[in-house]
C-alpha cells in the first residue's frame, strides 16, 4: 500500500486534533505516515503511533523552526522525492495552506485546498461559495497535495508501527530569508481554538458592546466551546479580529454553532454554513440566519442565553 504523508500540526510536540483526523483519513487512502517538523517529537510519537502512523519522519534541526512556512514545504518536498507517496495531506490552516502552495511548486504537483473529504481514489470534496456549492476535484499532475479542513473526519485510534526516521534537510537560500524573531502568545484562556473547536458560540451586533460578550463567553465555557464573532462585532472593537467568523475571517465547521444576535449576512454564513447543527438566538423573526437554523429561538439574547447557560451547567453537573 502506498504511503500517504500527513504533516503534523503541533505546538512544541503537543499534537493538534486535526492531525489525528488526517491520520484517520489517510488510513482510508493508503498507509499513513506522519511528518513532524520542529521540536518536541518525543512527546508526539506515542499519539501519532496510536492514531496509525506507520512511519514518523522527524525533522528537528533547530534551523527549521527559525523561518516561517518554507522549511515545512522543503521537508515535505524532499520526502515526496524520496518516498513517492500517493498523496500529501496537510491541515487547512493559514500556515498549512501556504506550506501546500510552496510544496506544490517544489514537487511540480497540483494542489487542492480546503477539502472536507477525500475519497479512496483521491478525489477531494470541497464546499465552496460559502457552503452553497459542493465540488469534486482531483489532482491530475504529480503527487496530490491536499489541505483538509479541521472537523472533516472523526479521529479514530488504530495503532500503527510508529517507526521513527530522522530526516535532515538543507534549506534553500529563499527559505532562510525571513526569520522569526519573536513569538507572542495572546491570552485566550483555556478555550479551544476557534477552527478546531467542536462547539462554537458566536456573538454579533446584538450583544450590544464588549460587556455583552460576557454572556456569550459564559455559554461557551459551560459547553466547553470556543467563542466567535461577526464582523459587526469585531469592527466595533467589541471582540478581537482573530475571532471573526466569515468570508474575511475564519471558516469553522463545528458539530454545534450557536449564533447570538447575528443577522446571518451572506459573508457571515460563508464561514459557518457547513456546521453540523446550528442554533440561533435573535430577536428579529425575519433575520435570515433563521433560514439555516436547526433550532431557533426568537427572543432577547440577554434573557435566553443566561438561562441556557444555567441549564447547561445544571444538566452537565
Amino acid at each position: 500500500m502506498a504511503e500517504v504523508l500527513v504533516l503534523v500540526d503541533h505546538v512544541d510536540g503537543a499534537v493538534k486534533k486535526v492531525t489525528l483526523e488526517l491520520l484517520t483519513l489517510a488510513r482510508s487512502l493508503g498507509e499513513p505516515s506522519a511528518v513532524f517538523v520542529g521540536d518536541g517529537s518525543d512527546a508526539a510519537i506515542a499519539t501519532l503511533t496510536e492514531y496509525g502512523a506507520a512511519n514518523i519522519y522527524v525533522a528537528d534541526d533547530a534551523e527549521l523552526g527559525k523561518h516561517p512556512v518554507a522549511p515545512k514545504a522543503e521537508v515535505l518536498a524532499q520526502l515526496v522525492a524520496e518516498k513517492s507517496p500517493a498523496a500529501v495531506l496537510i491541515p487547512s490552516t493559514t500556515e498549512g495552506k501556504e506550506v501546500a502552495g510552496r510544496l506544490a511548486i517544489r514537487a511540480g504537483s497540483g494542489v487542492i485546498t480546503d477539502a472536507v473529504g477525500v475519497d479512496p481514489d483521491l478525489t477531494a470534496t470541497q464546499s465552496v461559495f460559502g457552503g452553497t456549492v459542493i465540488v469534486k476535484a482531483k489532482v491530475g499532475t504529480g503527487t496530490p497535495v491536499i489541505t483538509v479542513r479541521p472537523n472533516s473526519t472523526a479521529p479514530e485510534a488504530s495503532a500503527g508501527a510508529g517507526a521513527k526516521e530522522a530526516v535532515s534537510v538543507s534549506l534553500s537560500d529563499g527559505a532562510k530569508k525571513a526569520t522569526i524573531t519573536n513569538k507572542v502568545t495572546e491570552e485566550k484562556g483555556a478555550r479551544p481554538e476557534l477552527t478546531e473547536a467542536a462547539i462554537v458560540v458566536s456573538g454579533g451586533r446584538g450583544v450590544g458592546g464588549p460587556e455583552g460578550f460576557g454572556v456569550v463567553e459564559q455559554l461557551a465555557d459551560a459547553l466547553g466551546g470556543a467563542v466567535g464573532a461577526s464582523r459587526a462585532a469585531t469592527d466595533a472593537g467589541w471582540y478581537p479580529h482573530q475571532y471573526q467568523v466569515g468570508q474575511t475571517g475564519k471558516t469553522v465547521s463545528p458539530q454545534l454553532y450557536i449564533a447570538n444576535g447575528i443577522s446571518g449576512a451572506i459573508q457571515h454564513r460563508a464561514g459557518m454554513q457547513t456546521s453540523k447543527t446550528i442554533i440561533v438566538i435573535n430577536k428579529d423573526p425575519e433575520a435570515p440566519i433563521f433560514e439555516i437554523a436547526d433550532y431557533g429561538v426568537v427572543g432577547d439574547l440577554f434573557n435566553v442565553v443566561p438561562q441556557l447557560t444555567e441549564e447547561v451547567t445544571k444538566r452537565k453537573g
Binding site: 442554533i279 423573526p285 429561538v297 426568537v298 438561562q307 441556557l308 447557560t309 441549564e311 444538566r315
Partner: peptide
C-alpha cells in the same frame, strides 16, 4: 429547523434540544 418564540423558557427549550 424548528423556530420558537421565547415566552420565558427559550433557554430551557434550547437545552432540551441540545440534550
Amino acid at each position: 429547523g424548528t423556530v420558537v418564540t421565547d415566552e420565558g423558557q427559550g433557554g430551557v427549550q434550547i437545552a432540551d434540544y441540545l440534550s
